[in-house]
């Protein structure tokens, strides 16, 4: 397992509030990692920094084998580098069909002229169908995605991430609002995805994290409080005090 992402001494301040405080995390490839922590611990800001939405005040974010810095790149450039993100609220393009949503996410050249002239290669339809089968939406391809249920939208968004074929997948609370059966399916999806790439899951739900069965990082007030297996961190006195004990 080689290091894919290295976050080093990163701090962010919003209007005097220190959302991230000297945070350092390393993610390997392949790896499944769960990030937990109470509200306001900086979980979402952590993802914002990696994906380029928020620029940190100090620190380094290094990426890939060559250790390129992500801080100078635009959001779209970072996504092209191979970092995919799933938001807390399912954000699929509700006015478009499932197939159109997946098609847009497919890994390919992203420039306007490429998109305009590089149309409809036959293999794309097959790839879309394969991903739809993977996320269990094979018979919903022609539906407008706004019509899908909440759980189906979450899967569609995970499917869009898989279609992007990223090296690092950032997933924000994937199980929120899902039924137990849907959760199980989601766990399987994430575990399978983590066999070949790095997957970081931000989650509130301990039961869900336990099912993921992976290394856990606990965030608190913008920095790492503890790291290790779930059993290890849940025995940590500090963690119990700030998070579990509540």
């Amino acid at each position: 397992m080689t290091t894919l992402l290295e976050v080093n001494g990163v701090s962010v301040t919003f209007d005097g509030f220190r959302a991230i405080n000297n945070l350092s995390i390393q993610i390997g490839e392949p790896e499944l990692r769960a990030v937990i922590g109470p509200n306001g611990a900086g979980k979402t800001t952590f993802m914002d920094i990696i994906t380029g939405k928020t620029k940190p005040d100090e620190g380094r974010v290094l990426w890939g084998d060559k250790g390129a810095s992500l801080l100078g790149m635009s959001e779209s450039r970072i996504a092209q580098e191979g970092i995919g993100r799933k938001f807390q609220k399912p954000t699929v393009f509700e006015a478009q069909t499932v197939a159109e949503n997946l098609g847009m996410a497919l890994k390919q050249r992203r420039g306007p002229l490429r998109v305009l002239f590089g149309r409809d290669r036959g293999s794309e339809a097959e790839r879309i169908a394969a991903i739809a089968a993977e996320i269990g939406l094979a018979d919903q391809l022609t539906r407008i995605s706004g019509e899908l249920s909440h759980g189906q939208k979450q899967w569609l968004e995970i499917g869009m991430l898989l279609a992007q074929d990223p090296r690092l997948l950032l997933v924000d609370e994937p199980a929120a609002g899902m039924t137990p059966a849907e959760r199980e399916h989601t766990t399987d999806l994430l575990k399978r995805a983590a066999e070949t790439r790095a997957v970081v899951v931000v989650e509130h739900d301990m039961e869900f994290v336990r099912r993921l069965d992976c290394k856990v990082t606990v965030l608190h007030e913008g920095s790492v409080l503890a790291e290790g297996s779930l059993d290890h961190v849940t025995r940590d006195q500090q963690v119990i005090d700030v998070y579990l004990g509540r």
Binding site: E75, S76, R110
Partner: peptide
């Protein structure tokens, strides 16, 4: 029409999300 149309309409509906898909909006 096609993929271009998809991306253009997606920009109308949620520009930030299109950016995270890797498109230079």
């Amino acid at each position: 029409s096609g993929r271009m149309g998809s991306v253009i309409r997606a920009i109308r509906d949620n520009e930030a999300r299109v950016r995270f898909l890797g498109y230079p909006v």
